[in-house]
Amino acid sequence: MKVNIEDYYKRTNQNVVPKGFKKVKKAPFTLAEMLYGTFNIVVSVIFILFIIIMNIAKPIISNLINQNFPLETRLIFFLSILILIIGILFEIYAIERARLHKCSVIGAIIFSFSLFMTFSITYIIVKYSLNWAGIQLFGQTQIGLNKWFYLPSIAYIGYSIFNVCYSFVLMNSQ
């Protein structure tokens, strides 16, 4: 039997697939989206529970600290609900991506919702000022006008911009 060595060194443009084997698509790694969604859900639930407890105990807290504090929590509750929804959307995205479904639609929904979050916090900052959280909770008092209440606004606007960028990457990753 004669063997031609050149046959072994020939290049072919065909992909050799053994018979009986099927190429299986592996599910992508979605731990980052799951953890980020879970973090958002946990943080928003903590804020929502704090707001509910604060609204239930509002008369007691008002009597203890001062009658001049309005302790208004509508805007904080609204922003907590937005964080909860974005966390749920990230969880849905991770599940759909693990199931190998088209998840670019969910990525687009997350992107548009993140834009809504950014515009809503921008509107709140423009309408009430950068220390809206202090003014909502403690009114036009010295505590309410404290510069430390700039931090929640700055943190939330940074968080919203991060969500926009992250969801844009997720939307275009497919």
Results as ranks from 00 to 15, higher is better:
L145Q: 13
V45T: 07
T12F: 14
E96R: 15
V105I: 14
A155K: 06
V45W: 03
N55C: 09
W132Q: 00
E91K: 11
V105W: 09
I109A: 09
F29V: 11
N131C: 12
I81T: 03
F90V: 07
L75A: 07
I76N: 01
M117W: 06
L79S: 09
G144P: 13
L170G: 00
A27P: 08
Y123H: 12
L64W: 08
I121E: 00
S153K: 03
Y150M: 10
A155M: 03
F149R: 01
F47N: 10
N55E: 06
I109S: 03
S167I: 00
F149G: 01
Y93E: 02
Y128I: 09
K26A: 00
L64Y: 07
G37S: 03
I65N: 05
L31T: 09
F116Q: 04
F39A: 14
I5D: 12
F21K: 01
S114T: 02
S114K: 00
I48W: 02
M1W: 14
M171Q: 09
K19Q: 12
K22C: 05
V169R: 13
K58I: 12
T12P: 11
F39T: 14
N66L: 07
E6W: 15
I135R: 05
N131Q: 12
L82D: 01
I95K: 13
Y156N: 00
N15P: 13
I143C: 05
R74Y: 14
L89G: 02
Q174C: 05
M117R: 12
L35H: 14
Y166Q: 06
P18S: 14
V164S: 01
K102Y: 05
G20K: 14
Q174L: 15
S167F: 00
N15L: 10
G139L: 07
I85W: 02
I41Q: 01
A108L: 15
K127D: 15
V45D: 03
N146Q: 08
I51D: 07
P59I: 04
I76A: 04
A155L: 06
V17P: 11
N13F: 10
N68K: 06
L35W: 13
M171D: 13
K147D: 08
L170E: 06
R74M: 14
S160L: 03
S129D: 05
W148L: 10
V169E: 10
R99H: 04
N163C: 15
